[in-house]
Design a protein around this nucleic acid. Sequence first.
DNA 1: GCGCATTTATCGCTATGTGG
DNA 2: CCACATAGCGATAAATGCGC
Lengths: 408, 408
Amino acid sequence: MSSFPSSSDRDKQWGVGPGRSFQQYEPSSFAEDLATRAPHNVTPGLSHHDWSDPSGKRSIDRIIQSEDYERSHGKVESLSDSQALSNDSGNEDDPEEKHRESKRPRMAISCSECRRRKIKCDRNIPCMACVRRGMPGSCRWENAKVEPSPQPFALKTQVDDLQRQLESLQETLKTLPAEVVKAVTMAQQPSNSNTSPSKQGIEHQDPREAFPRDTQISKGGVSSNGNNHTSSRLSANALNATSSATRSNAPPPKGLSAFYDDAAENAAVVLESIAFNPQTNEADAGNDSMISHEYWRGNMLTPISGAALAGSAKDDPPKLRHQLEQQNQEYTSALTSIVAPPWDITLDRFNPVLMQQGGSEPDTPQHLMRHKLDAMHSIFENLPSLSQSYYLAEQYKNIIHWRSRILQ
Amino acid sequence: MSSFPSSSDRDKQWGVGPGRSFQQYEPSSFAEDLATRAPHNVTPGLSHHDWSDPSGKRSIDRIIQSEDYERSHGKVESLSDSQALSNDSGNEDDPEEKHRESKRPRMAISCSECRRRKIKCDRNIPCMACVRRGMPGSCRWENAKVEPSPQPFALKTQVDDLQRQLESLQETLKTLPAEVVKAVTMAQQPSNSNTSPSKQGIEHQDPREAFPRDTQISKGGVSSNGNNHTSSRLSANALNATSSATRSNAPPPKGLSAFYDDAAENAAVVLESIAFNPQTNEADAGNDSMISHEYWRGNMLTPISGAALAGSAKDDPPKLRHQLEQQNQEYTSALTSIVAPPWDITLDRFNPVLMQQGGSEPDTPQHLMRHKLDAMHSIFENLPSLSQSYYLAEQYKNIIHWRSRILQ
DNA sequence: GCGCATTTATCGCTATGTGG
DNA sequence: CCACATAGCGATAAATGCGC
Ligand SMILES: [Zn+2]
Ligand SMILES: [Zn+2]
Ligand SMILES: [Zn+2]
Ligand SMILES: [Zn+2]
């Protein structure tokens, strides 16, 4: 750490380029460097010159990348994120901070993944790079800091901390009424604490067993994988299995019915608040941070755009190409099966295809209405999760907004 | 160590290229290196060439990025220096040791078993290789590799796992009635260990990296690393299941307590307004950056790629095969329904699926409203997690924003 | 079980873009 | 024109997994 051999820097002559010579690694650049990499969050521009402390640079940057860092460091905070996106409002800036520093001089356009990997991004949404890599779903665009590459290690303290929390929570849970506890644990399956990777798990043997399959899968979505969280909601569902047959199993826990109702209410409230006061929720949401953000981050599905596909195919081996095509086809069809099916868009009007089978009746307006509603039902039925509904709504909103801008 | 090919690597100076000369790995890095790595430690010092930062360090730094860091950030460096490398002190010399660390750490994606045997791994969690071998239980993804660093570090997988458990529990808790939750959190909340940290710490990186492809899919309950805490979500499935899989026009849900209806109605109105009257919300929309988007980062489900499926099926018993296919189908459709944009981008204009229905409907009879509400109920019943919805919404908002930029 | 040819990922450093 | 950021090349470390 001692200061770096500054003088030496200069020596490094490496062929200077024609034109201007970059001496990038000068002191200042150092700071820059940090800023850049660290990006994780920091990004926002603040100049972190401050801590330019030369020493340890490298490691430090990496380290710093945590958001908290910035937070604590000064400002940044969500602002950057939100801001970036929100753009519209634009008005109220942070009153307080005022730092003249421009936050983000240059907006990013490459997808996050490409930025992280420092590779070329074709700027499509599932960009080719991501598609080729087999994870079109991880192709996102966030106008924000770049995250550092994943690392296999973590701080032990983290582990300890988590462990502690977990225990604490579990402990607390014990104090709850029996029924509740039961429901909860049931839902959440004994989290064996074990941190250690001791195997356990699924036993082996019958391969079929290995695949948990059952259940959740079809879940309308989301939840899915191991994450439970989603799921949990032990409530409502059980209660009104309204929607048709259930997949069997899991009989609703009984004594909780009273709670369920409440849960439903809560859900409604939540939805409402999200819809109307996103920022308000911010707080809540924020705090629930219990969840790991990691969850959904990476494998979202996304249909590959035709262009991207075509492009990639160009020089890829036929095998890969075929694979991509097939993959895409799957995505697309799946997508269609749910979103599109009930509608016959070509009619340019609401026309629930599915419903039709039900017996085509005359075209009475009345009936049309009826169809409409039924179709809507179909949709809603396929929007099992709040995420979905919220997403659709949001999406729609965005589209409108976007369009108005484009068409200007 | 010895295995390391290379120390000599360094020699390979690859001649400087014509055109621009990169001397990348040399001089300049020096300074930098020195600052950073060297200090750190350990590294033995190999002649500069070797600066190979030995490794540990490198990766370690990365690791550290956790929040905890910042906390201490005040001095991060110290940490890094001493801590991380602490080991070094003293023995830093052995060339051997140090070597084991790599300059460019990469996360593994094949399961441990496959890696060990050097055979192909389909990257699913019980990977086919393991399944076929009859020991799906032994299929784990431990990023084993080097786990050298003594003290302060731990495998990230551990952290992930813990985190997951914690989240799961908390999520579940959230579904409980407010009062209960309050009691619980209160009891344990004492801001124990800054909770916040956890969230972030882990965040970057995620599994997706690890399993580029669709992997987790079958995971169902298995947490990624082997632990089996099954995922909970006891009931949700039931409900949701129906939807995607079945497209039957199930009759509208009904029969909840009156009060539920009220709540739902409110929510329904909200949702409706969002969907049908986007502009109203527009303002809000912008700000979104709500919640820690980080939340869901990471474990989204992804359908099994056709290729993978095909491959596995190849020599598997038909029964299993069928199961897999079905499972996949369900996953695909479910997930797609969430992610799939309701518009048809290729048309360069949208096909507002939702819009239509909403838009018109001026004279909605009373009973129509009723249906709508019923539909809303369906949604609420499946309300999964706030985090998810936020994440998704955010995600898409980003996309829209991005598009608007690209399109100018 | 494993040598080793391939494929893939990481990252120093340069080229560019952009707001001020 | 400059300071500061992003884009992304291309060398090269590492992981994968064929084939014996
Ligand atoms: Zn990209
Ligand atoms: Zn991408
Ligand atoms: Zn495997
Ligand atoms: Zn395996």
